[in-house]
């Protein structure tokens, strides 16, 4: 485990981990060997070798269109690898999806979507199951289970700090608030692997730090967290491993060995500097994506 940020956000304090069934720390969660990705008839990247173990916090980095989202879809079995072998939670991708929480890239709900945030979170638990549950009937006939599920739901919503607005229609809350509820939806099924596609995207800086700290804590509980990020700096301090996808190549490893001035400059084909601060943190300067982020 990498050292956590010393300062802790209020989000993290509001919680009480919902005791998932994480795998023993150190067991491989994702094993990729020579993986290549192809989409729309184009080769996105090839030669990805990576082993992600349980409880690791991993970032997938790279410029737009590199194939980061496609890689997450490959882990879910929704996109077949063009070459190589990929194992997720000990089986081929798609077989263990009930143990995976997934947050796709940039989803937002406009104000016409009239369903509460908590309803959306609940779908993360049982949305795939057939049937039409009527809460009123369940409350009458299956009270104990209903209340237990309700408590778990409330806990997870509290954990992401969304209690105040969970009861409102999802389309009425802000983009950042929607994002927190969607993270709760991915968390609520007590996953062993969490795949988050640019979860910090629609958040302001304090919220980015809050959510990053929350994710770090989740990974400390034994859940493997794989996050696609635009700007590496808010999470750099937490990372156990990074997977860089640039220019058709993919490079995986611990941040200290992968995130170096030479590596990044070579991958991006542009001068990029990696600086170590006095507190020992890495900072990436001149990263094209990071630059575009800071511009607005």
């Amino acid at each position: 485990m990498s050292p956590a940020h010393p300062e802790r956000n209020s989000v993290v304090e509001a919680l009480d981990p919902p005791g998932p069934g994480p795998s023993p720390v150190g067991a491989p969660t994702v094993v990729a060997a020579g993986v290549a990705a192809r989409a729309g008839g184009r080769l996105l990247f090839e030669g990805l070798d990576a082993t992600v173990t349980a409880g690791q916090f991993v970032a997938v980095l790279g410029p737009n269109g590199a194939g980061k989202s496609t890689f997450l879809r490959m882990l879910l079995g929704l996109h077949p690898p063009a070459a190589g072998s990929l194992t997720v939670l000990g089986e081929r991708p798609g077989r263990r999806n009930h143990d995976i929480g997934y947050l796709p890239q940039r989803r937002s709900f406009d104000s016409s979507v009239r369903i509460r945030g908590v309803d959306l979170v609940r779908l993360g638990v049982d949305g795939h199951r057939w049937g039409t549950p009527l809460p009123l009937v369940r409350r009458l006939f299956d009270r104990a289970r209903f209340e237990q599920e309700q408590r778990h739901l409330d806990d997870v919503v509290a954990r992401v700090g969304a209690t105040a607005y969970g009861q409102r229609a999802i389309g009425e809350v802000s983009g950042g608030e929607q994002q927190r509820l969607l993270i709760a939806q991915a968390l609520v099924r007590q996953p062993r692997l969490l795949l988050l596609d640019e979860p910090l995207d629609s958040l302001d800086l304090p919220n980015q730090q809050g959510v990053a700290a929350l994710l770090q804590q989740i990974s400390a509980d034994g859940v493997t967290v794989v996050i696609v990020a635009h700007d590496v700096n808010p999470i750099l301090g937490y990372l156990d491993q990074v997977i860089y996808i640039v220019g058709g190549r993919a490079l995986a490893g611990p941040p200290e060995t992968v995130i170096t001035t030479e590596n990044l400059s070579r991958l991006y084909g542009a001068p990029i500097e990696v600086i170590r601060t006095s507190s020992g943190q890495l900072v990436v300067v001149g990263q094209p994506d990071a630059a575009s982020f800071h511009a607005h």
């Binding site: 999806n97 796709p104 959306l120 795939h128 199951r129 049937g131």
Partner: peptide, 24 residues
């Protein structure tokens, strides 16, 4: 039929990509 597919239909309606990943 609607009663059988109600919950997955709700999921697929509001959140198709996550529903797909969850096996709907």
């Amino acid at each position: 039929l609607l009663a059988i597919v109600g919950r997955p239909l709700l999921f697929a309606s509001v959140d198709p990509r996550v529903a797909e990943a969850a096996g709907v």
